[in-house]
Design a protein around this nucleic acid. Structure first.
Length: 986
RNA sequence: GCCCCCGUGGCGAAAUGGUAGACGCUGCGGACUUAAAAUCCGCCGCCGCAAGGCAUGUGGGUUCGAUUCCCACCGGGGGCACCA
């Protein structure tokens, strides 16, 4: 780029360039001119069905096909954009412009995801309110994007921090809070299970048609307000959880599982994360686990992303089994979850997680005759468990992972009874069993599970094998005994029969069955004996939804003097953020696991303590001081583009049906949703999962008509960059590094090349503004679209940009005389060869655009343009379609040439060129003649040559005759007109 | 450890069972020019004077024919990770 800047600038002065040459200065003039024109004419305004939002011509949508295409909206950071950021934005813009030319009503807009920690930290540093800095950043980003010529409908832009948007985010929270999940409800779409208003549940409790959990024989009206609130909390889709959560002292907030890395650190900031029992808002996303997996089938998404979601949700099928346990407080029930109920005869002990409630009722003394290793050196079980709990609480997830394999645990003094065999099983506690998965308790089967086996070996517990490898398999059970568990499903059940079961007293045998059959049989027995049931479990946890931060949406919730939660009525929304003396989160030493979260919103007493009339007269309340996570705003923004100014609805249903409904457009299939959604793969399980969850709740409650938010998803690749380090490992400015003899030189010294991201600290940033100055926006867009397949990551290479510039210059010269500025196209009828090339190009480019392959589309446009350059004069009837096909990628120069050719209207809505069938295909094709797969000759033949004739011609070739050696060929394969493949005789 | 994706010239890449390297960058040669830039024309996978041979990470397989399909391995990237 360095050398180029020099050449363009200095030569412009030294030599007079032709006055009307397409260069960077000319490009900038043209681009600014057309951007103003588009803005003035509302060229990219999308038309709604009704209301104020009409298109540039003042019309409503009428019968036009809608096409809804958006990017994952950006977080407006203060750093501005580099050339890696807009790849996806340019791609969706090309698609938008193409669809507009196909006559569709295209909704293409851009909003800003503007709540979040970076803005808050920046505010703390600068002493400015985050709203001020955020809005500055948005303005700067808007300018940078605008300069790129992106065809947004600016009337539909908004930011998640706008009070008019926050209001509806809070409104959605209220709807989720005020609903529960009924797993038996039969939905209209044929599925089972649905969110329903909480009022229906209260009704069911009141009439007695549904039992009140924990209050079997009481009436709903007899319960206290606090008891009712607690019962409902266990059903609400947004609820107050009292379970272990991820507490991050370094950030001063709790985090969702999705925000914690495998090392047990915060994704942002990389601080340790601890498991703490804290009261926090949660969303019951697990209720939707099955639907979130199932409905992936009807989405046009990359398989990779679908797979990541399936793995993250982690559905597994098995059974829950009840064991009775003799405790200090009498007989108690211990429910375990297993995917292998067929191994019930092989369970030799049980393990509960350190947080398990059973541990509240353990005996005071160790039983007699137990091994010392079970006691861990403690005098009694209560002390042992207390200490073990404390130790595991202070462990980070990282510690747990590091110690994976090295099992620790202690005996609890409790014994459980196997419901089938009646065997007494010692109950241990160990942190390899997680409270958050299944029931937090397992029946350990050391003969069939590696972890249980490791534990059994360490504590001297018996191992029973209940499955042996299938007959004929090479491995025999003997090779496992004493060394390893047999974990495979492929086997025959053994050692699994009893004359009289403990619970029913009947005979039960699984011996000789295949594992799958045994699972079915024992599950049926468990259900008959009422000690178990088939059950599906999910790796997915409920979504921890509150954060202790300032810069986010406040919860629309207040607590009365009893501490019971109440929603703020819809007509009193939004709840706006208060001014506080200090925005910063209360952070701690990152390793201080005993610290407690403190919300910044609690620092304004006047805001927290309020008197409100929630419908039953003025009362005193205190506000919830948490804020929602960053994901809240991005969960539903796509539908707000439909009308961000709508005061009456989150989204009006007629408009929703038109733009995003299940049958709104061929491209959206039956799922409905956005026709094309482009963004990075890094959101595969965060934003995209949360968003689908909210959408499904809103669907169940009848607010939206489509089941899914995004029908087609496309992940663009990352633009990477080279960075260079000197001998001391310091980064040197990449723009000033020269390549010499395969090495890299900076200021005469050899430097090393690295490959990775673009970043300020790597000194290899190139900004869109650099590109506009040196080449113009059209060349920049052209380069980004031509550098390779959109989905692939690849290195940025400024040196290659010039190729696109040259193409545009040649096209310009084909239309305009550089010296005089006169039009040079002719009205001559093009020759046959040109017509064939034109029509084939239209055919191919259309295909490439449909498949989102702008790189190959561009190469075909270059071929056509190069052909025109070689002609004595350029026919208008050929160059016009060429310009139209280029317009989505390089819109400004295309508009300018289109106008110079005498067209008065913008080509943004001009018809996409059509090809004429009669000029498709070639006059002659090259038929390839192969002998044993090797090319031995070529023939120029007519495309519709008779296969017999082609075969005769091919066999007559001297090179073929020579290799046949006078013998007749064994076989001849003819695929006219392309290939003749000869197999010689032996 | 388990799962997924990707390996093609000096570089970005085309070709998804049928002429490997379209298009672009770089490089080389030529025209124009006093000269240079820009522009235009041509060449450009490797070995070989040539005929020809070898080439899509490596090895095998299927096929008349494999960059493309199958198996194993090597290298790079990504996801998950004590999930019972």
């Amino acid at each position: 780029m360095h050398s180029n800047e020099n050449s363009t600038a200095s030569h412009a002065e030294a030599i007079e360039e032709p006055q009307f040459r397409y260069n960077a200065d000319m490009a900038q003039l043209i681009e600014e001119k057309w951007q103003k024109t588009w803005e003035g004419q509302g060229t990219f305004w999308a038309a709604n069905v009704g209301g104020d939002l009409v298109d540039g011509a003042g019309k409503h949508a009428d019968k036009r096909d809608p096409y809804f295409v958006i990017d994952m909206f950006p977080y407006p950071s203060g750093k501005g954009l580099h050339v890696g950021h807009p790849l996806g934005y340019i791609a969706t813009d090309v698609v938008s412009r193409y669809h507009r030319m196909k006559g569709e009503n295209v909704l293409h807009a851009m909003g800003y995801d503007a709540f979040g920690l970076p803005a808050e930290q920046y505010a703390v540093q600068t002493g400015q309110h985050p709203r001020i800095t955020t809005e500055q950043n948005i303005a700067n980003m808007r300018r940078q994007l605008h300069r790129m010529g992106l065809s947004f409908d600016d009337r539909r832009s908004f930011a998640t921090i706008d009070p008019g948007y926050v209001r509806w985010t809070q409104w959605i929270f209220s709807r989720i809070y005020d609903s529960w999940y009924d797993p038996e409800f039969k939905r209209e779409d044929g599925g089972v299970g649905s969110a329903r208003p909480i009022s229906e549940l209260i009704e069911a409790f009141s009439t007695g048609s549904k039992q009140i959990p924990g209050h079997d024989h009481e009436s709903w009206e007899a319960l206290s307000a606090a008891e009712q609130s607690e019962v409902l909390n266990d059903f609400r889709l947004a609820y107050i959880s009292k379970s272990p959560v991820n507490w991050c002292p370094g950030l001063g907030t709790v985090l969702a599982n999705e925000e914690v890395t495998a090392e047990g650190r915060s994704e942002r900031g990389n601080f340790p994360v601890f498991q703490r029992e804290l009261k926090q808002w949660s969303m019951r996303i697990t209720a939707y686990g099955h639907r979130l997996i199932n409905d992936l089938d009807e989405l046009d998404w990359p398989e990779k992303v679908k797979l990541m979601q399936r793995n993250w949700i982690g559905e597994s099928h098995g059974a829950s089994v009840h064991f009775s346990v003799e405790t200090a407080d009498g007989e108690k029930d211990m429910e375990v979850y297993t995917t292998r109920p067929d191994t019930l005869f092989g369970t030799t002990f049980a393990v509960v997680s350190p947080e398990h409630r059973l541990l509240d009722a353990i005996p005071e003394q160790w039983p007699a005759d137990i091994p010392e290793s079970w006691k861990g050196g403690y005098a009694n079980p209560r002390e042992a468990v207390k200490e073990y709990r404390r130790a595991s609480e202070s462990k980070t997830a990282k510690d747990r992972v590091d110690e994976a394999g090295e099992k620790t645990g202690l005996f609890t003094g409790l014994y459980a009874t196997n419901p089938i065999t009646g065997a007494k099983l010692p109950v241990f506690t160990a942190d390899y069993v997680l409270m958050g998965y299944g029931t937090g308790a397992i029946m350990a089967v050391p003969g069939g599970d590696q972890r249980d086996y490791d534990f059994a070996v360490k504590y001297g517990l018996p191992v029973i094998y209940t499955v042996k490898p299938l007959e004929g398999a090479e491995e025999k059970l003997e090779s496992y005994e004493g060394t390893a568990p047999f974990v495979s499903h492929d086997g025959i059940v053994i050692n699994s029969s009893v004359e009289h079961t403990k619970v029913l007293g009947d005979a039960l045998s699984l011996d000789g069955l295949r594992v799958d059959a045994a699972i079915a049989k024992v599950t049926q027995w468990l259900e008959e004996a009422k000690v178990g049931t088939g059950k599906t479990s999910y790796r997915l946890r409920d979504w921890l939804f509150s954060r202790q931060r300032y810069w986010g949406e406040p919860f629309p919730v207040v607590y009365d003097e009893e501490g019971l939660p109440h929603l703020i009525p819809d007509d009193q929304l939004p709840v706006n953020l208060p001014e506080v003396p200090d925005y910063s989160p209360k952070t701690y030493d990152p390793n201080n696991a005993d610290s407690n979260p403190e919300a910044p919103l609690s620092r304004n007493d006047d805001w927290v303590e309020v008197t409100l009339d929630l419908g039953d007269g003025p009362r005193k309340y205190h506000r919830d001081t948490n804020t929602m996570p960053n994901w809240a705003g991005s969960c539903w923004y796509y539908m707000r583009y439909i009308d961000p100014a709508d005061q009456q609805h989150m989204v009006e249903s007629n408009e929703f049906d038109y733009w995003l409904g299940p049958q709104h457009n061929d491209t959206a299939g039956t799922s409905g949703g956005v026709d094309l959604y482009v963004g990075g793969v890094e959101h595969a399980v965060l934003h995209l999962l949360y968003s689908r969850f909210w959408h499904k709740v809103l669907y169940d409650l009848g607010f939206v008509s489509s089941k899914e938010p995004f029908h087609k998803l496309f992940n663009q690749g990352m633009i990477q960059a080279y960075a260079y380090t000197d001998e001391r490992g310091q980064y040197v400015p990449a723009a000033e590094v020269e390549e010499k003899d395969g090495g890299f030189i900076y200021e005469g010294e050899k430097v090393n090349r690295e490959f990775g991201k673009m970043g300020k600290s790597l000194k290899n940033i190139i900004t869109p503004d650099d590109m506009y100055d040196t080449y113009g926006a059209d060349t920049f867009r052209l380069y980004e679209m031509s550098m390779g397949p959109l989905a692939e990551s690849r290195p940025w290479n400024t040196r290659n940009v010039i190729g696109g510039m040259r193409f545009l210059q040649r096209l310009w010269r084909n239309v305009i005389d550089e010296g005089s500025g006169e039009l040079v196209v002719s009205d001559d009828v093009p020759d046959e060869k040109t017509l064939k090339l034109l029509n084939n190009t239209i055919h191919d480019v259309t295909e490439e655009m449909e498949a989102m392959r702008p790189n190959t589309a561009i190469s075909k446009l270059i071929v056509l343009n190069n052909h025109l350059t070689s002609l004595p004069s350029v026919p208008r009837s050929v160059v016009e379609p060429l310009i139209l096909m280029l317009a989505p990628v390089a819109p400004h120069i295309s508009e300018e040439l289109w106008a110079k050719l005498g067209h008065e209207d913008s080509l943004a809505h001009a018809d996409w060129p059509r090809y004429d069938e009669q000029y498709l295909g070639q006059d002659t094709v090259t038929a390839v003649v192969q002998v044993k797969g090797k090319i031995r000759g070529k023939l120029e033949v007519s495309p519709d040559i008779d296969p017999k004739e082609l075969e005769t011609l091919a066999l007559a070739l001297p090179a073929v005759q020579e290799r046949l050696g006078g013998k007749p060929p064994r076989k001849v394969i003819v695929k006219a007109p392309r290939i003749v493949s000869v197999v010689p005789g032996v």
